[in-house]
């Protein structure tokens, strides 16, 4: 499959949905993507929906609530804002704005309906969360929706993990099937249309490890089949190849000679060069080689998806201390924003 170009994959996109298997760093990647877009001069909203407070931790700001908070103001004039959507607050806000339910809202809360809706009732939670994102994507500065300037140039959604993302995005469709008439039905249909449009895309974050790549492949197929656009595949925590191929080759073909070279070099520069150290260094190199070999195979699997690929380096110090800014630099260098 020929890979779509990056520029083509990102053109005109207003909603970037970022997903990945748990533990691959999707929150960090979503934050880096938001930052990159803001540095390009846009007004960007970064949204999380799982109440993890990943955004506040990534940017070192106090926990986010249900109002938008500015995280970064860039010299380009771009701004990055953050929002943590809470289903319960979204429900009450939704009922208030759509139905003017002063007293009924309170009654619903007392009856346990709000708890029911946001924790037990199937899908309602996801409907509310996607509904809030839908609202942000379409929000305009005018008094009515669709009038005036769009408030956000782009919205980046730190979405649920790959295992659940297709269900999460398709929830409105299922709700539209269950609720065949009424305002929920039409709202659900509008949200589905927005998520399926060419202005929304899903980015898949993975590591060069077997299970995340497998999940990425599965999710790409599942999302495409469900009618959602897949944007880029972001390969996170890519290790730099520190040992050149010829050295790795010698490790396989002539381990003894390589051990001798290392031993004598170490002795020359005055580092202790006992068998344990030399053997340990070579064992580390062997493990590295095995890992690289495995990663090559996984690269092929990712390539077969035919999507543009972005590589983000493994940060030796983790993502703390400005790591997200370094990742944003990387994304910009690879043509994002």
């Amino acid at each position: 499959m020929p890979a779509t170009s990056l520029a083509h994959a990102l053109e005109g996109i207003r909603l970037h949905v970022v997903t990945g298997k748990g533990g691959v760093g999707k929150t960090t990647v979503a934050a880096a993507l938001g930052l990159t877009l803001a540095r390009g001069g846009g007004r960007v909203l970064l949204v999380e929906v799982e109440g993890r407070q990943g955004i506040s931790q990534t940017f070192g700001v106090p926990p986010l609530g249900d109002t938008e908070v500015r995280l970064v103001q860039d010299s380009s004039g771009g701004e990055l804002w953050g929002l943590s959507v809470d289903a319960k607050a979204a429900l009450l806000e939704y009922l208030q704005s759509f139905y003017k339910l002063g007293r009924a809202g309170g009654a619903l809360e007392r009856m346990g309906v709000v708890d029911f809706a946001t924790t037990i009732a199937p899908g309602v939670r996801d409907v509310l969360l996607t509904g809030k994102v839908f609202e942000a994507v379409g929000r305009t500065s005018g008094s009515r929706r669709g009038h005036g300037e769009l408030v956000w140039d782009a919205v980046v959604l730190d979405a649920p993990p790959t295992g659940r993302v297709a269900r999460f995005l398709a929830v409105n469709e299922q709700v539209a099937d269950l609720a065949k008439v009424g305002p929920i039905h039409s709202q659900a249909q509008s949200i589905t249309r927005m998520l399926r449009s060419s202005r929304s895309t899903v980015h898949l974050v993975t590591l060069l490890e077997e299970m995340p790549v497998q999940e990425t492949t599965d999710a790409a197929a599942e999302l495409s089949a469900a009618g959602f656009g897949v944007g880029t595949v972001v390969v996170n925590q890519v290790r730099t190849a520190l040992v050149p191929d010829p050295v790795l080759a010698r490790l396989g073909s002539d381990r003894e000679a390589l051990a001798d070279t290392v031993r004598s070099d170490l002795a020359t520069v005055g580092v202790r060069s006992g068998d344990r150290t030399v053997g340990g260094l070579l064992a580390e190199t062997e493990a590295h080689a095995a890992r690289l070999h495995l990663e090559d195979g996984l690269r092929d699997d990712i390539g077969a998806l035919g999507r543009p690929t972005l590589d983000l380096p493994a940060l030796a110090e983790g993502t703390e201390d400005g790591g997200v800014a370094m990742l944003a630099d990387e994304l910009a260098a690879q043509g994002v924003g």
């Binding site: 139905y99 339910l101 009924a104 009856m111 309906v113 065949k180 009424g182 305002p183 039905h185």
Partner: peptide
């Protein structure tokens, strides 16, 4: 009264069939 109101609201929001 509250329960009635809640049920009525749900019916309005979700549609009767749901």
């Amino acid at each position: 009264f509250g329960a009635n109101l809640a049920a009525h609201t749900l019916s309005r929001v979700l549609g009767g069939q749901f």
